[in-house]
């Protein structure tokens, strides 16, 4: 379990990094936290010719609060997302998922951008960014573009980033008044990839659901938004008996959109069942939290 040969490049600045990516294209791999890439190297499942280490680049781990969004550098470590009081306040959903990303030690190294660019369909951060309706900034020598979370995750381990593009920033919609969030996952062990997970962002207004987004993870080839399920909640007071019906219906619709895989650990049927269970749980969490904020 030793990595195959490659050439290691440590660009001095962003510009140089983009040159390297432009030059090597598909043959290059970006090395961020290394939590996913280095195991693949050690098992020789990945064989990049060039490894572009972006850990030393200045300015890629900064946090800016803007109008309704927080922008974090791609190299922000997951442990900062978990621990920073500022981020916990602004991004409660991201903070809620953070303890489930790997383990204490790996979160020190693992980055927000790395996790999004990796596009693992079981990743917590892709699910959260999608649920919040955030986006990322991709830069290349050709210029820069924003990619909405909806468009970023193409397939398991495949993102919309072009080979010459570097994900440099993540734009997170900030929790506003009346919003509440819920996150839940089921894994076999603490810190494992989830068998299924769900996230919910919900705004209460006048005692009813005004806006809601429900995201599902690990149950398709990419994280999903369960739009129909969300639609079934809008306008309902979830505390009443009608609310129970709405939540049950939303959970049913969520389970229906999931496209889970069978594997060693769990069946399609079980994962689909979990989608319903977890959806209900996160909707309730978000409803409660939205109520507290109001």
């Amino acid at each position: 379990m030793k990595p195959p040969p490659f050439r290691y490049v440590r660009p001095a600045d962003l510009g140089e990094a983009l040159v390297v990516l432009a030059t090597h294209g598909d043959e290059a791999k970006v090395l961020a936290g290394g939590c996913s890439l280095v195991p693949m190297l050690n098992m020789r499942l990945a064989r990049p010719e060039v490894l572009v280490d972006v850990n030393g680049l200045d300015g890629l781990a900064e946090v800016h609060a803007g109008d309704g969004t927080v922008t974090t550098g791609a190299m922000l470590r997951q442990s900062v997302l978990e621990r920073s009081p500022q981020l916990r306040g602004a991004l409660p959903l991201a903070a809620a998922c953070a303890p489930h990303i790997g383990h204490f030690v790996t979160r020190n190294r693992g980055t927000v951008g790395g996790s999004l660019a990796h596009a693992d369909a079981r990743g917590e951060l892709p699910l959260v960014l999608l649920t919040l309706g955030g986006s990322v900034l991709a830069q290349s020598q050709r210029g820069q573009r924003a990619i909405a979370a909806e468009d970023l995750f193409v397939y398991h381990f495949t993102s919309a980033l072009e080979p010459d593009e570097l994900l440099t920033e993540v734009r997170w919609p900030v929790a506003g008044p009346g919003w509440g969030y819920g996150f839940a996952e089921m894994a076999q062990r603490h810190g494992d990839y989830a068998l299924a997970m769900a996230a919910c962002a919900l705004r209460r207004h006048d005692g009813a659901v005004a806006e809601v987004r429900l995201g599902l993870g690990a149950v398709a080839d990419r994280p999903l938004l369960a739009a129909d399920a969300a639609g079934a909640l809008v306008g309902h007071d979830l505390d009443g008996p009608a609310g129970d019906v709405a939540v049950t219906e939303a959970a049913r619709l969520a389970a229906a959109v999931a496209r889970p895989f069978d594997d060693l650990h769990a069946s399609v049927a079980y994962r689909r069942h979990l989608v319903g269970v977890l959806s209900e749980r996160v909707i309730r969490q978000a409803w409660l939290a939205a109520g507290e904020g109001a």
């Binding site: 959970a251 769990a266 069946s267 079980y270 069942h273």
Partner: peptide, 19 residues
Amino acid sequence: LTAPRIWEVLAAAGERGER
């Protein structure tokens, strides 16, 4: 006795825990 396996057994027995 993993959670998925137990659930499958209950499901097969028609005892699937419903929400």
